[in-house]
Amino acid sequence: MTDPSQSGDGPGDLELIQRWRTGDQEAARLLVERHAPALARFAVASGAREEVEELVQDTFVRAFASLDSFRGESSLRTWLFTIERRLLLDRRRAARRREMVPVAESDVATEYDALDGVVADETQRRLRDAVERLTPTQREVFLLRVTEGLSYKEIAELVGSTEGAARVHYHNALRSVKEFLDA
């Protein structure tokens, strides 16, 4: 299995990290360019549509501040997802403490309803609806697998679960999506 960050023509993540440590700011830019889109997709998929840019930025700031703790045992992208997920959970807890409206599936569905007025593609709308109907855990696992191509092992590390549980969540989610689309 190949690592997406290593399969391109550019330098690998570990090499860029090392270059940044020696003062190469361009290496930081390359890392951000490489991983920001995936972090943005994950944020949107996790229901943080309104704070994507801020969340992605905070993820990178926190990651670069603690790069010494990155041992390279997992891919950098998985490590970034872990940081972003933790930030997202912290924000949701803080929002609940402030008695703000928490991010719930119904809210995300409302946002998509609004978006639906603009997006004419019926197929895309149905695909989004199918995903939105998943439970939060199913959706998280499913999107990490489908949109990011993470392995069950990587997903298990990221969400603090097991490979077997990740596999079950993925297949249950896929079955649910198919059933919705076939209905």
Binding site: R29, V32, A36, P37, R41, E53, V56, Q124, R128
Partner: peptide
């Protein structure tokens, strides 16, 4: 479909 939902990130601002 889901990738198209994610906004573009201002890389310079993040850097």
């Amino acid at each position: 479909t889901l990738a198209a939902d994610a906004p573009a990130i201002d890389v310079s601002r993040v850097v």
